[in-house]
Simulated assay, not measured.
Amino acid sequence: MSKKVGVEASLTDVRDALMEKGYDVVELKSENDASGLDCCIVTGLDSNMMGVHDTVTQGPVIEASGLTAEEICQQVESKLS
């Protein structure tokens, strides 16, 4: 079963890279979207803009600010393995 990762809409390069690696990627539009995900990727432009940090999630929240798509994929893989 593939891991389910939530990605903010503006992070299209990250979404594409994770999909290529076989992750089930969903777009985060509100804090309710984070429920049930293995991991969430947020831009970090507005810290905790969507309230994801306060939402009960089973997985980590990764802030994408300053990271390449490949670096984010590496973080996701290390946190979910």
Rank of each mutant, 00 (worst) to 15 (best):
R15W: 14
V76E: 03
S35H: 14
V26T: 02
K29R: 12
Y23V: 05
A34W: 10
Y23S: 03
V76S: 05
G6I: 07
N32P: 00
C73W: 08
V76A: 06
H53C: 09
A69G: 08
T55R: 06
M1N: 06
A9V: 11
L37P: 04
A64C: 03
A64F: 08
E31M: 15
M50A: 14
L28I: 12
V25K: 06
A64W: 03
K4W: 04
V42K: 04
E71N: 04
K29P: 00
D38N: 12
R15S: 14
L18F: 05
S2M: 13
L45I: 12
T43V: 12
D33H: 15
G36L: 00
A17R: 13
T55H: 02
S78H: 08
A64I: 04
E77Y: 05
G59E: 01
S47H: 15
T57D: 00
S10W: 07
T57Y: 00
K21H: 10
S81A: 12
V56R: 07
E70Y: 09
L37G: 01
H53E: 11
D38L: 03
D54A: 09
T12M: 07
E77I: 11
L67G: 09
M1R: 06
R15K: 14
S30W: 10
D38E: 08
G44Q: 07
S10E: 10
V42F: 12
S10A: 10
Q58W: 05
P60L: 01
V25Y: 02
S30H: 08
I72D: 02
S30G: 13
A9Q: 14
V14S: 13
E27P: 00
L11D: 03
L11F: 08
Q58S: 13
N32Y: 11
K29V: 02
S2D: 08
S65W: 03
S2R: 13
V26A: 02
S81E: 08
D16G: 04
D33N: 07
S65G: 11
S47L: 12
Y23W: 07
M49A: 15
D24M: 06
S65E: 10
V56S: 08
H53M: 11
E71Q: 11
D13Y: 15
D24N: 12
V61A: 07
L37D: 01
S30R: 11
K3P: 03
C39K: 02
G59A: 10
I72P: 09
M19Y: 00
K21Q: 14
G66L: 04
I72E: 01
M19S: 15
Q58I: 11
T68M: 05
A34E: 07
Q58V: 14
D46P: 01
C40V: 05
G51K: 10
C73Y: 08
V56E: 07
C39W: 01
N48S: 13
T57A: 05
T43K: 05
G6N: 01
D16T: 12
D38K: 11
D16W: 04
E70L: 06
D38G: 05
K79S: 13
K79L: 15
G22L: 04
L45M: 15
E71K: 06
L28P: 00
G51V: 02
A9F: 11
E31F: 13
E27W: 02
N32Q: 14
Q58C: 02
S10I: 10
L28R: 00
D13T: 14
G66N: 04
A9I: 11
L37Y: 07
C39L: 09
I62F: 03
S47D: 15
